[in-house]
């Protein structure tokens, strides 16, 4: 992993850490855990990415708005002062559906800034339509004016959020972005011991069990492994990786070898969770999609935004560790939207 990612976050022995525990707490009353310093370091490094919370708010707002337009198009047209003709109702419903899917897209952060900008574009359409409605003498102007003011206010917020999202501040998560390196980190709590989690992960050939985009990982040497990932249209992307650091029950870090087409590197840390909560598993990952045709294949691998992909992998790791396998529903068995109903496709278990 690039030297920039700190691998020395000292985990086990918290000596020196006790000074960090609130000094206002009497000696005898202090918690018996040795340190809070480790968590403070995580907190310090974590700045999130600015603009997200406003985007979240608008996502929620969008959902509400879309829902109302879809469910009660008559009421909505009346409120915004559009004559309640069949055509208008269809229009309101369509606007509602757009609003709603925007909300989901923003919230699920599938490329939030794109969804935000599509919202801005959507607002512009709303404004244009309302303008048209106002010009029609049959529709009530004052109501339409009210709605326009409402949409304008939302538009202003949208523009603000979209701009903040596209001008993200520098954080650990996006530093190096201008060099084309994408970096992400995610974590999860797994109800098994650090020893069990480490042992399962350390056998790299297990990785495809919970990293759904991997086809196989083959161990080729003491520190070497060969990774094969699924790319769209039945293609594959392959690379060799070497293990950089391996601290039993604590940490594994790896990176692609010099000659790999796809630069990528990762670290996973296992650390006992407080109480009997199991293990805190933290992954940091960075990769640089190469340019050109291969690049677009790799980008497709990560199409869901890298953080989301890592989170999915971690969730699946938890499922495999706790329950033995990844759970499917009728709708999520296949990629893409599918109704919650069985299909005729064969099942591979």
């Amino acid at each position: 992993m690039g030297a920039s990612i700190e691998t020395s976050t000292n985990t086990m022995n918290g000596d020196g850490g006790s000074a960090a525990i609130g000094t206002a707490i009497g000696e005898q009353a202090r918690p018996r855990v040795s340190t809070t310093a480790r968590y403070q370091r995580i907190a310090n490094a974590d700045r999130g990415t600015g603009g997200e919370s406003l985007a979240n708010f608008l996502g929620v707002f969008s959902l509400g708005l879309g829902l109302a337009q879809m469910i009660a198009p008559e009421g909505m047209s009346k409120l915004v002062g559009i004559k309640d003709a069949e055509g208008n109702r269809g229009l309101m419903r369509a606007l509602g559906a757009r609003e709603f899917s925007n909300g989901i897209a923003i919230l699920s952060r599938q490329q939030p800034e794109k969804a935000m900008w599509s919202r801005v574009a959507g607002d512009a359409i709303d404004l244009a339509l309302l303008g048209k409605v106002m010009a029609n003498p049959e529709n009530s102007r004052s109501r339409a004016l009210f709605a326009t003011a409402n949409v304008l206010a939302v538009t202003a917020l949208d523009v603000m959020a979209a701009r903040t999202l596209s001008m993200q501040p520098r954080t650990v998560a996006n530093e190096g972005a201008d060099k084309g390196i994408i970096r992400t980190k995610r974590s999860i709590t797994v109800g098994k011991s650090p020893e069990e989690c480490y042992a399962f992960w350390r056998n790299f050939e297990n990785l495809p069990q919970f990293m759904r985009h991997l086809e196989s990982v083959t161990v080729t040497g003491e520190r070497r492994s060969h990774w094969k990932a699924k790319a769209p249209a039945g293609q594959t992307v392959e690379w060799d990786a070497e293990t950089l650091e391996d601290r039993p029950n604590e940490l594994i870090s790896w990176r692609s070898t010099e000659d790999a087409d796809v630069y990528n590197a990762g670290t996973v840390r296992f650390q006992k969770a407080p109480g009997d909560r199991g293990t805190e598993v933290r992954v940091e990952l960075e990769y640089k999609p190469p340019l050109g045709k291969l690049g677009s294949k790799v980008a497709m691998l990560w199409r869901e935004e890298p953080g989301q992909q890592v989170m999915d992998d971690l969730r699946h790791f938890k499922q495999v560790m706790e329950t033995g396998e990844i759970l499917f529903s009728d709708a999520t068995k296949q990629r893409g939207m599918h109704p919650a109903q069985p299909d005729d496709k064969p099942v591979e278990l």
């Binding site: 396998e325 759970l327 009728d330 068995k333 069985p342 299909d343 099942v347 278990l349």
Partner: peptide, 8 residues
Amino acid sequence: PDPKILNK
């Protein structure tokens, strides 16, 4: 379609 076993 009828449902099938998807998980163990």
